[in-house]
Write a protein that binds this DNA or RNA. Structure first.
Lengths: 224, 224
DNA sequence: AGTGTGGGTGCTGTATACAATATACAGCAT
DNA sequence: ATGCTGTATATTGTATACAGCACCCACACT
């Protein structure tokens, strides 16, 4: 017997976190917006308790700013934040590469190849949500190979912040050339195939530097 | 004017966090212990709301494990956790050194010298709480020089976990040679003076590897 | 005009009350 | 004795109620 699907009771708190997080990432909540607990309570049909707890988590995640007796606000990143986020991401991804390089197998590289292909198709078909998802999946898979829970969590939090930044970039640079990412991912994959750790790190550095600069545009365009 | 101390109304939540955190770090709460909300409520004289919120934060911090409808437990690190924690610490401190090296001034090095001296005195006087505090202050100061809020926060969380591990080490290795740290700190400082980034990283690697191994002892001695 | 003052309002911080779930254990059947 | 099932109890998850702070704005005063 068995082969039943485990029933997982998702707490309201987690569901609220998910809702608010995606609202922020998808730009339905704008940077600086005041997130009023009572409003969320009404909109989501839950009480304030899980809402409050969700906001506390989101603050830790860096998507929300809370000030005592004032409330929670969608975090408005400035240039320094963007720089910090991407330098941290580079550090973490370099670390991930160090650990992943010795253990990646041929099937992993194939899977990554596949993800690139899927991303390419999504670009052709104009499904930009999918493009972003596949892009993230590529990096996430690499990070995952590092088999390092702390790293994975820290990277995951960063990625949530970056996702909200990418939304701003999309606004600031509407005709963004998505194929750049394809070439870059191929380059990373080649470096992995060659076992060239230095090459991987250099690529991480360059790519994150570029994306950071693009996100700076988004952030700046928001300031006024 | 200014140079006034900011009046900060510390929320009950934060105070509960602080209390529980120090209880864990100082070993008054043992790994695996069940943290019952009602009990904390009575002991601290506050209601369950701030207690719950504090536990949520502590879970994010990695000091507490929570399972739905079961409760919160003091996190019991295993060998893999310890390895992960210290490899992450090495990564973060190497990153910190990269950023700090170009900006540290003579006065910073003097201050670090001072911290080492204070730690030395604390060892002589047998104030082991102070020894630990000064040790951490040394590393924290270096991390601070990196001027990177994300790095600082991630490192801070790690340090909280490490602090609880050090307590276990103290139990497993009662006659620990505290002066090792002094020599190591001097070595790091020398490497900074020499502007030798590679040397700093090598030291970070070696020191964290050693401390990790010692903490493994503490974790293993707890398993039975 | 500018500055201080008072009250009103909406929000958050905290406490408490209720519902749902997990665990332990007793009772029953086999 | 063993294994299952029902029930009791403790604990967490959620909802609601109350208290206190922050901001807004009108108004008086200089």
């Amino acid at each position: 017997m068995s082969s039943f699907v485990q029933i997982k009771a998702v707490s309201l708190r987690e569901r609220v976190v998910a809702q608010v997080r995606s609202a922020i990432i998808e730009g339905r909540l704008r940077p600086g917006d005041h997130i009023v607990e009572g409003t969320l309570t009404r909109q989501l049909g839950v009480s304030r308790t899980p809402v409050r707890e969700a906001l506390i988590l989101l603050e830790r995640e860096g998507l929300v700013n809370s000030e005592p007796h004032k409330g929670s606000f969608v975090r408005a990143f400035d240039e320094a934040d963007v720089a910090a986020i991407f330098s941290m991401r580079t550090t973490l991804e370099n670390f991930a590469a160090e650990r992943a390089l010795p253990v990646v197998a041929e099937k992993d590289l194939h899977h990554l190849d596949d993800l690139i292909a899927q991303q390419e198709r999504a670009i052709r078909e104009g499904q930009f949500g999918q493009v972003r998802a596949k892009d993230m999946a590529f990096h996430a898979y690499l990070v995952r190979q590092a088999e390092h829970p702390l790293l994975e969590r820290a990277w995951g939090e960063l990625v949530a912040q970056i996702a909200s930044l990418l939304y701003l970039r999309a606004e600031a640079v509407p005709d963004y050339d998505e194929t750049k990412a394809i070439r870059e991912h191929r380059a990373i994959l080649d470096a992995f195939r060659a076992g060239d750790l230095g090459g991987i790190k250099a690529l991480n550095e360059r790519i994150n530097g570029r994306v950071a600069a693009e996100c700076q545009l988004g952030v700046r365009s928001l300031r006024r």
